[in-house]
């Protein structure tokens, strides 16, 4: 097990957003944290990363994930001020912050990560000369430069159009297969979950005001049959069922 949450209570400010959360992320699996806006998807992801105080319950990381050297993170969008100059190489290299790698190895990792996301030869180009979709792929490259065992993503396609989003998820799916990556991804994109996920953690909002939400966990197949899936997503829950698109990996 790479990461395990055991009966964890997750706060955001003074309010408890999710309670009694148990989640196990096994190597090689793609766990998608799903739920409507405000249900606590990002809170769960941040809690799993140990970025939120957990007074109740326990978050355990596998020894190989201690120190976060083999952990990659893709945020929702680029937060860098677009008036700041940066090249693709420098931007991706920031993903190696805090790691002790020599100059040669550093250059190799940056080059490989950029090539992996299909932007080989762009290392010296300005980061800002790239489209929104390409920038999101470069965020992915920044995470891949750490050679992660676990790749965590917080709504990585929230700012992309459907075509760029589709391209992004196909890339993630390919990387997962080729590099044996373990994924933990918060998203409200049910189509992406249908294509890529093996497991689902469904954030179910509380029915009473002031109460904490809960999290259901299981495989994608199981999630398709939960009554809560329909209750949370309504008719759009159908997106989680159905065929996988061309190009997606066989399950």
């Amino acid at each position: 097990m790479l990461l395990e949450l055991d009966k964890v209570r997750l706060p955001r400010g003074s309010a408890v957003v999710l309670d009694d959360v148990s989640l196990r992320i096994a190597p090689g699996r793609a766990t998608f944290v799903l739920g409507p806006n405000g249900s606590g998807k990002s809170t769960l992801l941040l809690g799993a990363l140990g970025l939120l105080p957990t007074r109740v319950g326990r978050v355990t990381r596998a020894p190989e994930l201690q120190g976060a050297a083999r952990l990659g993170f893709v945020p929702q969008r680029v937060t860098l001020d677009d008036s700041l100059p940066t090249t693709v190489g420098e931007f991706v290299g920031l993903g190696l912050a805090g790691l002790r790698v020599d100059r040669h190895e550093r250059g190799r990792r940056i080059e490989q990560a950029i090539e992996t996301v299909g932007l080989g030869g762009h290392r010296q180009r300005s980061f800002w000369a790239h489209s929104e979709g390409e920038r999101q792929r470069l965020l992915l490259a920044r995470a891949l430069a750490r050679r992660p065992l676990l790749l965590c993503m917080d709504e990585p396609t929230a700012s992309l159009d459907p075509a760029a989003s589709h391209e992004f998820w196909l890339l993630v799916d390919r990387l997962r297969r080729e590099h044996d990556l373990t994924l933990c991804c918060a998203t409200h994109d049910l189509l992406a979950a249908r294509w890529v996920a093996t497991d689902v953690a469904l954030c179910v909002p509380a029915t009473r005001p002031g109460a904490a939400g809960r999290v259901l966990t299981g495989t994608l197949q199981e999630a398709r049959t939960w009554p809560e899936t329909d209750a949370v997503f309504g008719p759009t829950a159908a997106l989680l069922r159905g065929d996988r698109p061309p190009g997606a990996s066989p399950r």
Partner: peptide, 19 residues
């Protein structure tokens, strides 16, 4: 420079990466 610049420009990622 890398930890300082990453923290200045993307605090959440810096925290996630254990800085």
């Amino acid at each position: 420079s890398a930890p300082l610049l990453l923290t200045a420009t993307d605090l959440q990622t810096a925290r996630a990466l254990g800085l």
